[in-house]
């Protein structure tokens, strides 16, 4: 049998991978991918909790996380395309001008 703690450890490792990706990478798209990994890890923890307490609330919340991730990616990628059009770069280090 799998214990609930093991599911939590898996979700925590995935979440930290996403966080490290968002912090260490300099590319805006990779930062957004890191955020996606973090949201997915939260989903795994919630599905595990749903099974642990035999309640469907966790699964309902994962559905909302998915919709939220879709909305976040749509706006985030539109922002990245917008910024790339203005500055010609997707490297976060290059954004050093407030009004250009």
């Amino acid at each position: 049998m799998v214990s609930y703690g093991e599911v939590l450890i898996l979700a925590g490792m995935l979440f930290l991978m996403g966080a490290v990706c968002a912090v260490a990478q300099r590319n805006l798209i990779m930062i957004l991918i890191g955020v996606e990994i973090m949201l997915n890890a939260a989903g795994i923890a919630l599905v595990g909790a749903s099974l642990r307490w035999n309640a469907l609330d966790g699964q309902a919340f994962v559905l909302f996380i998915m919709a939220f991730a879709a909305a976040e990616v749509a706006v985030g990628l539109a922002l990245i395309v917008f910024a790339q059009r203005r500055t010609g770069s997707v490297n976060a280090d290059r954004y050093s001008v407030l009004k250009g």
């Binding site: 049998m1 214990s3 609930y4 035999n54």
Partner: peptide, 9 residues
């Protein structure tokens, strides 16, 4: 509490 064994459902 986290050592609770998950029952497949």
């Amino acid at each position: 509490d986290t050592r609770f064994q998950l029952m497949p459902a």
